Amino acid sequence: MVDTGVFEAIRSVKKNPSSAWPAAPIEVARTLYRNRRARNRHFDDSLFAEPRWDILLDLFIAEEEGRSISVSSACIGAAVPHATALRHLGMMQRNGLIERRAHPRDARCQQVRITASAATSMHELFADLA
């Protein structure tokens, strides 16, 4: 299921062509992620809960910025309870969207990142939207 915020953003650009949709995929991802957080400040989070999309956006942004994300940070970025986020991370890993790896300096911590194929799909999605 695609985030309804994507369609709302496209509609607003079409209504107001002078406002440019960010061309760079990372800017599209940042805009979508900020819009989702803003929406959650005004509505009950459970109305629009899409934690996998939030995690994917967060991991895509981190990958583009060259940052690493811990599993705990990914759970926070999903804006759902920790156990729920872990369940979604597991499903995403089984579906080849993310991969986990050991932290290079802290054996107690795991890092999570978007897979190359999922990142490619995100780039293609944002190119289609631009």
Rank of each mutant, 00 (worst) to 15 (best):
D128H: 02
H82K: 14
D45T: 10
F48N: 01
M122H: 04
E63P: 02
A49K: 03
A62V: 02
P51C: 01
A107D: 14
I61H: 05
R94Q: 13
P104G: 05
R101L: 09
C109M: 15
Q93Y: 10
I55V: 11
A78T: 07
A127G: 05
D44H: 06
M91S: 13
A83G: 07
L125K: 08
V71I: 09
A78P: 02
R100L: 12
V112T: 06
D106F: 12
S72I: 04
V71M: 07
I69P: 04
G96Y: 00
N95L: 09
L59I: 09
G96L: 01
E63Q: 10
Q110C: 02
T120G: 11
I55C: 07
D58F: 13
M91V: 14
R108F: 12
P104K: 03
S121H: 06
P51V: 00
G77H: 11
L129E: 08
A79Y: 09
H103T: 05
C109E: 15
F43I: 05
A49S: 08
F48G: 00
H103R: 01
A130W: 00
T120P: 01
L86M: 08
V80Q: 10
P81Y: 09
A107S: 13
P104H: 01
R100H: 12
A62C: 04
H88K: 09
I69N: 11
H88R: 07
T115C: 10
Q93S: 15
A102E: 14
C109Q: 15
L89C: 03
R94T: 14
A119Y: 03
L57H: 04
A74K: 02
I114T: 06
R105V: 14
L125G: 03
Q93E: 15
S121L: 12
L129G: 04
F48A: 00
P81T: 00
H123C: 09
A118Q: 06
L59F: 05
C109V: 15
A102Q: 14
A83V: 04
L89T: 08
L86N: 08
D58M: 10
S72K: 08
P51S: 03
R101A: 12
S72W: 04
R105G: 11
F43A: 03
S117H: 06
D128R: 00
G96M: 02
D45F: 10
